[in-house]
Each structure stands twice: as structure tokens, then as C-alpha cells.
Write a protein that binds this DNA or RNA. Structure first.
Lengths: 183, 183, 183, 183
DNA sequence: TGTTAAGCGAGACGGTACGTCAAGTCTTTAC
DNA sequence: GTAAAGACTTGACGTACCGTCTCGCTTAACA
């Protein structure tokens, strides 16, 4: 397995390269050169630039962002709205936008990446939201979480239309109605 | 502009190549060779393999599949469930799966592709669903359509969990509750 | 086939590199870089650094040295001795020595190189000597030529012992006796 | 210096590898792996795969094959013809052919290899033939041995033309004439 | 109808990156 | 405390495509 110092240099290299030239510019060759590492060293551990980047991101932000922070003030409606508005704001940041789009694209092709993203990013996020819903006595918290996030991703990923200022509150209202008692 | 016969040969070539080796295996060089065309001829008209493929697909299926068929039996709940089950079945087909994933991935990178897909595939689909909802006197049909499709795409694209047999009906029930009177 | 200007640049590159760093330092990559050519351009025409070098050498010296000059003063013994002394002198030159050794080594491995060398260097040389012998009414000129050159190469290639000043005349005498009347 | 058991394992490894994949396939890495030794252990004692192989060969066959057996029935002509035919037969064996070509090629590059080969293979061979000639009262036995072997090697190494059935006897006749009384 | 420019096939070209291999050096582990 | 195991940097390998660029050869439209 790779030595710790090697991993660190590679992580630094991939992050700096991604920051400079975007995800599309990442190549194994370039990462190796920037890291002062041999290509074989990279291939020994990672299978593609996306895998390197993902690993770097996860290592970097594991504890901090790994714990997807779902607010819990007791007011479910307000909490979900805060969450949705936060996500939209994050997606509006060009850096995050480019990065998440790249990961999503890669994820379509490489199932291994997909599994890792699910394990360490999406899964926790969905679970955290589901937990918040469960704490509010919602009947089907997993489906509720999906109902909350699905349209956000759909609109963002497929660029169907921009987010408007008042959409989040209306969206949360619909989601809450969807999972309310009658369900 | 390319001659009609050239276009036709290129379209045939890209479709057969995509069918054989998947989207990832498409290259301008390969398409040109299969089509018996020069590379320059391709570059004169299209900028990437994705553009060629998309053009071929749209030309092939524009009128037929372009008209997204949303059933309208009068029973909204049943119609939407039929629609959702149909989509899920389509996504389960390996060929469709690969193709749509590839287009989605490409769409993250190339805004021109994105615009074309939105114009000619997603837009009509969303509008057709919204129309169906509007005909059932739903208040916010666009948001309803998004609420219906978003979770399906979310689960499929991000591979969070498989679709189960009874999920569609529960999902449709939630969506209908979401857009009911209060919305 | 390669364009003339490309060939010329590649030939110049390989000759200058060989002069600077010796044959062992030749790589396809290095030649391509020096020539300002793509690697594929090299591989399209030549299969190895040795092939490039050989081609350059042959093109360079084709007419001049291609015509292996066997002296013909009428005095066969003197002519052959001149020839042998000339060869020994040439082999004593470090540049020629290194180059011919390299070609000989490569020739063991790559049959295509061998065929080319035979066609354009060794064949003509042997034939020229055989012709000279034939003109002197020697019965088996090809075998005579081999008898003349074989021991020279043997001693030089295998470094069995150095050439001495009086060896050529004794050697030629033996060869002439070998192919005389009885042969 | 390497331990005896290590040397033995390395020798076995290099011989088996050479037998399987030919000389060209030998690498320090492969030998080390096959021998169950570290690469460093190899480099400590040998400088190249050729050195390892040569060492193994010489250790294996020193006394046995080192004594080049030149027949001595009293009939010099017949003995030399037997010898030549034997050499040609040996060179016709693909395994011997490959091995000797490889050693010859290596010998052009690495003078140390050359010296060792001369000392322990070629030298004894030439000396044995010279001795046989001397025993037949030939005046210049070393030159005679060279005259006998030179053309064989020349034709084989440079692949000028194949050996024919009746060439050995004619060749021996010429060599004997060359070194006869007149010389 | 005969000319002439365009579109075209073919593919060489300078490049970049690929993923692999082996070289030779180094560190770590374990006997 | 020596050597195995093997990670490391380096650099060449040969291949695949990239996008650009000549080359003739069609071929359709205009003179």
C-alpha cells in the first residue's frame, strides 16, 4: 500500500490541479508530475483521476463534512428549508458546481466510484435527512428524503430551469404534505 | 454543410458503434472509419462524439419518441403510476441505461449538449407531464412534474437503492398529496 | 509513406544523437523529440531505433559506400591485401567499431534488420569480392569471399586477438592457396 | 558476496527462465522473483541479466563442455569435417541458436562479458582445434583454426546464406589446402 | 456541356495521455 | 544484522486519439 507521505503529496497535487484547471484537466500523468511521483505509484492505488480526486476530497473533508449537518431546531419545516437553501447555495458556487458535476459524470461510468460516493457522501446525507424526518415522526423517512433531494438534483443536474427565491419554501411545503399522516 | 448521404452514413455508423461498444468507445476516428468518411468531414459538422450521437438519436426518434406519451385515462393516479412504472422499466433496460447515463454524463461537461437535450428530450417530457397534471387541475403542474421525476432520477442516477415493486404507487400517492389542495 | 522532409529531419536527428551519446542511448522517444516529430510518425515507418539509424546510414552513404570498392589493379594478391588492410583500418576506427558492433548485435535479434543489412551492405560487399575473384578465374568465388572475410569478422567480433601487421598478407596467401586450382 | 544457496537459486531461476522465454525475456526483476530473492541481492553480485545467465551457464557446464571435444581419429580431413558438421548441427538447433546469438549480441556491448566468453568458451575451442592441427604438423595452427571457424560464424551470424549439405567437405578441403606445405 | 470550386476520402502529421514494464534505489519487516 | 519483500522515481515502451493539415478525386452547380 502506498506510503502515507506519498498519499499526502498526491492528494495535495490533485487538489491544486483541480483548483487550477478544473476536473477535465486532470490526468494521471499530470498528477504524478505535480506530486513528484511515478505514474506506477498512482496506478498502484487509484484507477483514474476521478478516483484520486475523490479520495483526496473524502480524506480532506471526512470528519467535517462527513457528518452532514441537518439542522434540528425542533421546527421541521424551517429546518428543511434551511437545508434546501444551503444545498442550492452550495450548488451555485462555481467550484462546487464543477466538482459535483464531474463526480456525477464519472459516477455514471465507473461503478466503483459510484459505490464510494454512495458510501461516503450520498448515503450519509440521505440517512441524516431521514433521521431528521424520523425524529419528527414521519412515516417513511427514506422516501421523504428522496422526495426532498430528488427535485433539487433533477433541476440542477439536468439544468431544466434556475432555482427561484421562493421555490424552497414551496417545495418543502409540498414534501411535508406528501409525507404527512395520510401516507 | 455535410451532404445528406454523408450524414446518413455517419448516423448509421455512430449508432452501430454505440450499440456494439457502448458510448465510452466512441471516437471521432472510429466513427469516421466506420462511416467511410474523412475525419475532417466529421469535424466540419460536429464537435465531439457526443454531438454526433445525440444528433443521430434525435434525427432517428424525434417525432416518434419526441412526443412523450403520457397516458390520459381520466384516472390521474393510475396514469402517473403507469408512467412511472414505464420509466423504471425503460431505465432497467441495459441499452437505455447505458445510453442515458452517457448522455447525462456528457451533459455535465458540455453545455451545448445540455441545451439540446433539454430542448428536445427533457423539456417535452416535463411539459407533457405538467400538461397532464394541469388537466387534472393541479395548481403547480411544473413543480409536480419535477416532484414526480426527481426522485426517480435521483435513485437511478446516483444508484442509491433499487426500485421495489410497490414503490411507484406509494410515490405517486405522495406526489398527489403534495400537490393537492393546499399546494 | 513518410514525407521527404520528415525523413530528412529524422535522419539528421538519429545521426546527431548517435554521434553524441552512442548507439545505446538511442530511443524512439529521443529521436522523435530531437526531430520534432511525433512518435507515431516514427513507428509508422521504422520499428526500432536500430532501423532508423540503419536507414539513415544507408541513405547517407548509399552511392558512395554502397559501391563497395574492390581494387582491381590486375594483381589479385595485392588487391586483396589492400582490401583486408582497409577493412582492418576501418574496424579500428572507434566510431565505425561501435556502429558496426551495434548493428551486428541488433541483427541477432531483429531478422528484418538482418535482411536489410544483408541486402544493402553485406551482400554487395561479398558480391564485389566474389566478382573480383571470378575475374581472376577463381573457381568458387563466393566461398573464396567468405574465406577472406570470415576470419576477419571472427577475430574482430569475438575479440579473440588483435590484428598484427603481417597477418593480412599471410591470410591472403592462405586464401589464394585455398581457392587455387584444386578448389 | 551472495550466499551459496542464493547463488544456486538464482542460477536455477535464470536457466529456467531462459529456457522458457528465451534470452530476451530475462529481466533482473523476473530472475529475482523466480529465485525468491530481492532485486538488491542480485545487483550486489551481477550487473545485468546477461551476467547472471553467463555465470549460470559457465558454472553449470564448465568442465564438461569446456573441454571442446575435437575428434582425433588420425584422419585430419575427416575429423575437421566431423567438427564442422557438428557445429553446423548445433547452430541449427533453435535453442543453441538463440542462446549463442544473444551472447554474441551482448558481447558487442559489454566487454566484461566478452572477456569471460573468450576465456572460457571461445579460447578453449580455438585452442583445441589449433592443437589438433598442430598434431597434424600444420605450420600455423591458430590461423588455421580461425580459417576453419571464421566462415562458419560469418555465414551463421550474418545470415548470408544457408549451409548446404556438401559445403563442409569443400570448406575443409579449402582450409587444408590453405594451410598446406606451401604456407 | 464543360469548368470549376466545394465537399470529400484518405491519411500523414505534431502532440498528449494512456497503461505497462523494467531499471536501479530506497525503506521496512522479519528471520 | 542481513536479506526478503516491495514501494518508490524515473523513463521508455508502443498504442490510441486528438485536431490540423495536405493531397488528389469526385460531383454537383454555374458559366
Amino acid at each position: 500500500m502506498a506510503r502515507a507521505s506519498t498519499r499526502a503529496r498526491v492528494h495535495a497535487a490533485v487538489l491544486s490541479l483541480a483548483a487550477e484547471s478544473g476536473f477535465g484537466g486532470l490526468t494521471m500523468e499530470g498528477i504524478a508530475a505535480r506530486a513528484g511521483a511515478g505514474k506506477q505509484t498512482l496506478y498502484r492505488t487509484w484507477s483514474s483521476p476521478a478516483a484520486v480526486l475523490l479520495d483526496a476530497l473524502l480524506e480532506q473533508s471526512l470528519d467535517a463534512a462527513g457528518e452532514v449537518a441537518v439542522p434540528d431546531t425542533g421546527d421541521l419545516r424551517a429546518d428543511l428549508e434551511t437545508l434546501v437553501r444551503g444545498m442550492i447555495a452550495e450548488l451555485a458556487d462555481p467550484a462546487t458546481d464543477r466538482l459535483l458535476r464531474a463526480v456525477t459524470a464519472e459516477l455514471q461510468t465507473d461503478p466503483a466510484i459510484g459505490a464510494e460516493v454512495l458510501d461516503r457522501l450520498l448515503g450519509p446525507q440521505l440517512r441524516a435527512i431521514a433521521d431528521r424526518l424520523a425524529r419528527a415522526a414521519v412515516a417513511c423517512p427514506e422516501d421523504g428524503a428522496e422526495l426532498l433531494l430528488g427535485p433539487v438534483f433533477h433541476r440542477w443536474l439536468l439544468r431544466t430551469r434556475p432555482f427561484t427565491e421562493d421555490w424552497p419554501s414551496a417545495h418543502v411545503a409540498r414534501v411535508l404534505r406528501a409525507v404527512s399522516s395520510g401516507g
